[in-house]
Design a protein around this nucleic acid. Structure first.
Lengths: 278, 278
DNA sequence: TTGCTCCTCACGTCACGTGAGGTGGC
DNA sequence: TTGCTCCTCACGTCACGTGAGGTGGC
């Protein structure tokens, strides 16, 4: 018979752990003195404790260990549980690898730029959303900005505030030089039959912003001519963290520029749908 | 200005998180209505939140993030912190790999034996300990058991209970066939000048059980002729988990056999010092 | 008598999730 | 008026670690 301190020392666990396991009904001392409350353990309880510790090592929570010990389950069922545990561990292993890559990319940023990156990339996901938009080829940035401004003004006045969500610009790849293939419109909280007519006779149509399981996201504010810095940061992040771009870039206007109140700079969230490189 | 729900939706976090971060002093709403207590956030606070989320992703605890944001630290210091974070992650990655191996070895046990292993291996470590012992070549198991019994009887009577710890048998490798190279004695709680004489004129001498940073440990009870099962389980565990044996095996008697009380079977902890395979 | 070991509470951990119970704005 | 959103507590999480304050046995 060992007192709790000696038993704890032999098992290399703490007294607190032994008392806690008794409280949980995992392992009770072979004998408890009724007067002093002293706990006494036998050598034969050490393998019982070791079984608990071994199951804990395998990743089982204590509550599950208790039912495992109580129920004397089938080996095949146990095997299935172990396979699930293994899959969990492997998933968390992958997450650790991603995390290490992420840290490494930040370290390299500091080493190369001498400073911590100003833009913080955050992963998000989104479901599909109705999108009242028009797609158009624009010749240069100026034309693109005019299109956005037009959509903004007429969409803003034709769509009710309860339905209208955010001004979004999709940039499709595939054209070189100054030619930009853009889709501009408002995301909607629900579908609508409203029509938004533009002065040139065209009008917006009801489309859908597709769902994206994973997107890199970054918020940019400040003058348009600095936006390349933000895009550069996103591109670097995507590459260093082992992703590929998987769809057209979206620019979501969280705050529209309002020159009247002296607030000429919008706040834009740049979103790139991505997927893991194989 | 966004109310908390909309801001949370944009940022893809919970309202609770935003309130919690305000409580921690990480991010306060741009404005709080004094009457209703409603929180209002601006689009420009999204990058602030993203910075917090990005630092959290890198593994920093929130308390540390708060001081990071407040103190505007040097890039070089930040780099050092990131390197430490990375080292931590890599360590935990190694532990995950070990854990997966451990689970795999249990799965294979079930598949090969059709049952969950009866013996549970537990890792321990030990410091050096004074050891009153005698080393001897024994010709066969019977001679070995006689030696152990002799040491047990005379050591038990010559060493005071306060000093005497446990009966320990060390098995050195290097002899084939029936020849066993054993060191038998009592571990001590402190050094002593006591002399333990044996009937054949020899006596125990004061030695040291060396420290072992890592040992696989397994408790065996039951008849001696079944002990090979326990040794087999240990050997399998050591191999499957990527270790090598790194010193003589120790058998520590946690409960001595007491035939007088009808308790003929000892409880023995088998310990193998080990190291990771390179 | 003095240490030593043991006892029983009970709080703290970390980053929120999840109600309970209640109130303000369209 | 009815939903909807917001508010403030406050408990629960998981496996113990760490005192506080007190008692029994050599």
């Amino acid at each position: 018979m060992f007192r709790i301190g000696e038993f704890a020392q032999i098992a290399q666990v703490s007294c607190r752990l032994l008392r806690y396991y008794e409280e949980l009904g995992l392992l009770s001392p072979a004998h408890t003195d009724t007067v002093s409350g002293y706990r006494f353990y036998t050598a034969r309880q050490l393998p019982e404790l070791n079984r608990i510790l071994a199951l804990k090592e395998l990743g089982f929570p204590l509550a599950e260990i208790r039912s495992l010990l109580a129920s004397a389950i089938e080996p095949q069922e146990l095997r299935a549980m172990l396979l699930r545990m293994k899959a969990q561990r492997e998933e968390s292993l992958r997450q650790h690898l991603d995390s290490i890559r992420n840290i490494e990319s930040r370290i390299r940023q500091i080493e190369e730029h001498g400073t911590f990156e100003n833009y913080d990339v955050v992963l998000k996901s989104t479901g599909p959303q109705p999108f009242m938009s028009i797609r158009s080829l624009c010749d240069g940035m100026a034309a693109a900005l005019r299109l956005v401004e037009t959509v903004r003004i007429h969409g803003g006045s034709s769509l009710r505030a309860g339905i209208r969500d955010k001004l979004v610009v999709l940039a499709y790849p595939g054209f070189d030089g100054d030619l930009l293939d853009l889709e501009v419109g408002f995301s909607l909280t629900r579908r609508t039959n409203n029509v938004v007519r533009l002065p040139d006779g065209t009008s917006l149509s009801l489309n859908e912003l597709p769902a994206a399981e994973a997107m890199t996201t970054l918020v940019r504010t400040g003058p348009v001519h600095e936006s390349h810095l933000a895009f550069g940061a996103v591109a670097l992040w995507i590459e260093m963290n082992g992703y590929l771009i998987d769809g057209p870039c979206r620019e979501v206007f969280l705050e529209l520029p309002e020159p009247r109140v002296g607030n000429a700079e919008p706040v834009v969230e740049i979103q790139y749908p991505i997927r893991k490189v194989a």
